[in-house]
């Protein structure tokens, strides 16, 4: 049976984190700079939404506003953290292996697996705003060796087809989880099909820009939808659009089940 939910842009959790005040030791930068974070799932203070989807625990649409804005160096374990830069420039520092200072621009993305322990710092140094999608995933195992991989998605040459960014395809970044992240950037109207590995896999579809009709549900900019039990997803895209797909194994998760039971009306069967 196909099950799905729709999350409209404005229904996401909204946080503004200033770099002065009580959180200043956590948020880098000049007074007056701030992070605006739209969370598709529960995260930190925002606990009103769905706790996750499959292995996804965080899907954050974040804008770093102002020069020197970001998160100071802080520790993680276990989570696999991915960032996909949409606009601006992200300086990323981490302690995986010998450590890494990286700069990512539009189309660049990374997969940082914190595993047995690692720290990272996320910064936008220039005055230009930085917008990135942050994805946190449950790993397949605890205490994996920490790792960092990065790649580039060329928005100009890879148009009008669904391209796998993270997963098991040629050229995709590897991930220690039953998971695939793909992206579709279009400059003309078209119909596309997304086929998950099995119908048991869930697919979270997020419209970054433009719009898309997914299995007859119309999604506008920053709207999203989760689907399980579907053999294939049919997408109609009007013209210029940018769509992310996160395909994930569905864990039998007590927190998510309890939330779904309490919010049964939010599910469309």
């Amino acid at each position: 049976m196909t099950k799905s939910f729709v999350l409209r842009s404005g229904e996401r959790g909204h946080d503004v984190i200033y770099s002065d005040g009580s959180a200043s030791s956590y948020v880098a930068g000049h007074p007056g700079s701030f992070i605006a974070r739209e969370s598709s799932f529960n995260f930190h203070q925002y606990q009103g939404g769905r706790p996750g989807f499959g292995t996804i625990r965080v899907f954050g649409d974040e804008v770093f506003n102002g020069a020197g804005c970001g998160y100071n160096m802080h520790p993680h374990h276990n989570f696999i953290i991915c960032a996909f830069v949409l606009e601006g420039e992200l300086t990323h520092i981490n302690t995986a292996g010998r450590g890494m200072v990286d700069q990512l621009r539009q189309g660049d993305y990374y997969v940082f697996s914190a595993g047995s322990g690692g720290k990272h710092c996320e910064l936008s140094i220039s005055p230009e705003n930085m917008n990135a999608i942050y994805l946190w995933l449950m790993p397949g195992q605890l205490y994996l060796p920490p790792s960092y991989h990065r790649a580039h998605f060329d928005i100009r040459t890879r148009r009008n087809r669904i391209v796998q960014l993270v997963g098991d395809a040629d050229g995709a970044l590897p991930v220690a989880q039953d998971l695939r992240v793909s992206r579709l950037v279009t400059d003309r109207a078209g119909r596309f099909t997304y086929t998950p590995r099995t119908p048991e896999h869930g697919v979270y579809v997020f419209v970054v820009d433009g719009g898309a009709t997914v299995n007859e549900v119309a999604l506008a900019r920053r709207d999203s939808m989760g689907i399980t039990g579907a053999g294939a997803l049919a997408l109609d895209v009007p013209d210029s659009s940018d769509v992310f797909f996160v395909e994930t194994a569905m864990l039998d998760d007590a927190r998510i089940r309890a939330w779904e039971k309490a919010h049964g009306a939010d599910l469309i069967d």
Partner: peptide, 21 residues
């Protein structure tokens, strides 16, 4: 309250690292 129970094994050598974490 914001911890989640996980049914996950350790990676090779991970349990020893967790003991000293």
């Amino acid at each position: 309250s914001q911890f989640e129970m996980v049914e996950m094994g350790y990676a090779d050598g991970g349990a020893d690292l967790a003991r000293i974490a």
